[in-house]
Design a protein around this nucleic acid. Structure first.
Lengths: 234, 234, 234, 234
DNA sequence: GATGAATGAGCTTTCATTCAT
DNA sequence: GATGAATGAAAGCTCATTCAT
């Protein structure tokens, strides 16, 4: 279709790789509750179906790659502030969380799906490699956290990150599952269980961190709005 | 095929309803990562495919019903101790959590799938009804919690339950996603990120509750082993 | 459900027979383009599904019986005027055609379906019997026609009826197939081929009869509105 | 399965399109009273099921396409004689009718089914397009008829075609419905109402045309055997 | 490298009919 | 006679993936 140049240079390949991820991302954004078919992704990228398979071994791994790109964005920002000299507060971390995970409409649905994928369609080889890269990031971040929060004992930084992420993910799923059904007609269709995900998440994370880090953790309201230290220029 | 009696009385019908859920449960237990087809469920229950559709409008709703049965089991136990006079401790709640959610191999995978279902295949009508029943249970349990833990303000019991469940669910997904790949050959296939879900969950929940309820919450280790009050005879 | 009395007397049975046909007719009228399921017919008749099968050996034969009831209505009227002394004109016959076949919304769709049925789902035994009854009616009517229209030679009355019916049926199918698609949006959705079935049918029948009976046949317009002879009081 | 060449050129695609229609035709011919499943059609064409769906959006539209191919064959021949200079007689038209519609065993059953399809399973879009193509053919043929038969007024050519087709179709259905049941055992299974479709059709069409075109129309017997003008070489 | 034609496994749901009660 | 619970055959369509060109 689009007779782009062949990607011969490694840089060109990388570019096409990204272009496919971009296309998938656009599609996912456009209709969040269905997974686009490979055909659609190819079309959206202006490529043929077969070409997508030159860059990704399977549809699932494409999704996983997209997710990892999102994750990487978060960690890049996190490392930026953790590696800098300026002190890091809980508020800073929460702000990053919101910016990279909560606010973008794609991160959490995709993360959610990927956890399902791992157990099913991803070959163990690939799965393991992905996990190892995640492990490295988490350990590095956990260590950074422990540097900035002396209250954290060895290994507690990692655990705190893990628990925080679990909360972010689990609460998002519950919020999705308990959100108002738009189609539900009738007058009393007041959503049962309705709660606002972003606000409630702050409450939960704050409680969790307070339990671990101690009283230093501030009140929930406005947490996400805290300005970040200069290091996190992005 | 199976020439069982016809279920004519309402009680018989209820029984058959349960039998189908039992069959689905057995199948799910047997191969946790695939969803059995309706055909298989029917076979397993000794019924014809069409008969299953006499009792459940769709495969998805069968799954949801199975999940709700599990949930109900948990709440029944929870209400038993909350409604009794004896004081309830965090340990009691954690013990229930383990008994109903963590230890049975079906609860969490099914819960996870059901959150996905809600957004997709379940008709809004049904979805809403399910959520309403859940909301009632949660509110009742939240109120009970507030009675037993005076530190909890109004509405905090509900929020604590919500956050706990998010943690249970989210952490389970991460653990699943990070579990050792059994098929991964090679000697050093030591799982990266490996952590033991049940123990880590206790750590996380304890931290969360400590942050909300206060210091009363005990140390993590051994939490799940605490004996329950007599009310929870079951 | 409706615990009507058991139908023990033959008259009761006949009545229930009719009641089922009535129910089917109502359903067909209500949604002309789908065939109601046996279950629906039973419900509509206030009976259980199994009961319908006490009165009709199969769904198809139920449909056929309904059709035959319609046909019988037409022939009863036709015989009434043919057997009477008063002279019969083409207009009279056309008027009957409209009253019994064209105007009632059920006759033609049902007839159409029944012709399909005969070749498929109706046991030959039944099919033959139905055809024999039809043959008798047609022969009797054909003979009557020949009495009233001396221009018709022996056997031509029967043929004329046959051809007329073919025209009625075939033209109706074409009209259905060429009717305006209501859902077709856009401005120029002017139906291609559109023609008004009742008017066009009159034109066609008139041409046919003129070809056989001779010039006596009048103009098409207003044909169907001709008053009938007294014999057809009904 | 069948490792035929891939159809890359448009011409190859067209050919494969035809091949699928051929397969469907063969199947229909082989067992006239059932509709072959898509699976069977694919097998018969030496293709995979999915491949059929590459060429036809649905089973119903495949059937419709097959019908239209038949129809086109008839009109091609009709146009050939109408557009030629040589005078056209009714006999010529009847001969074409027999050759394309009556004699081939597929045309009429398929036509019959397609009229049913239009109202049901074909999307309005497609349905409308089909009707428009039919309308164009009919109008062109009607105009041609009026050129050759001066007795026909404006629009009467079209109407005559319509009525003729209705007769062809309707009479065929009746004949099918009244044909001898081969399976009907017993000695006196002489079909009631039996009449020979081809002969009776000629009678009917002749009568109809005589009614419209006038006395020029010849006797029925032997009509179909008339030699065609040279233009209709085909 | 790129294309897109071909593959074919996979699964839900409906509903006419039967027959135990 | 009446009921309605149980049966099970039947088939359409999608879409991830492959591979000939």
């Amino acid at each position: 279709m689009a007779i782009r140049q062949r990607a011969i240079q490694a840089a060109d390949k990388q570019e096409r790789h990204e272009a496919i991820l971009d296309a998938a991302e656009r599609l996912l954004l456009r209709s969040p509750d269905r997974v686009a078919s490979v055909s659609e992704v190819a079309d959206e990228a202006g490529l043929a179906k077969g070409t997508v398979y030159l860059y990704f071994p399977s549809k699932e791994e494409l999704l996983l790659a997209l997710h990892e790109r999102n994750v990487q964005g978060f960690f890049r920002s996190l490392f930026a502030i953790l590696d800098a000299a300026a002190p890091v507060t809980v508020e800073h971390v929460l702000a990053l969380t919101h910016r990279h995970m909560v606010d973008p409409p794609l991160f959490l649905p995709l993360a959610s799906r990927c956890f399902g994928l791992m157990a099913q369609s991803i070959p163990p080889q690939t799965s393991l490699a992905f996990k190892q890269r995640m492990a490295e990031r988490l350990e590095r971040a956990g260590a950074g956290l422990e540097r900035h929060f002396p209250a954290l004992g060895s290994g507690q930084g990692l655990a705190l990150l893990r628990h925080s992420y679990a909360l972010i993910l689990g609460l998002w799923q519950m919020s999705g599952a308990t959100a108002v059904c738009p189609a539900a007609s009738g007058g009393d269709a007041r959503a049962p269980l309705a709660f606002s995900y972003p606000e409630d998440l702050d409450l939960a994370l704050t409680a969790l961190w307070r339990g671990v880090v101690g009283e230093a953790v501030g009140g929930a309201s406005g947490v996400a709005r805290t300005a970040l230290p200069a290091a996190e220029a992005r």
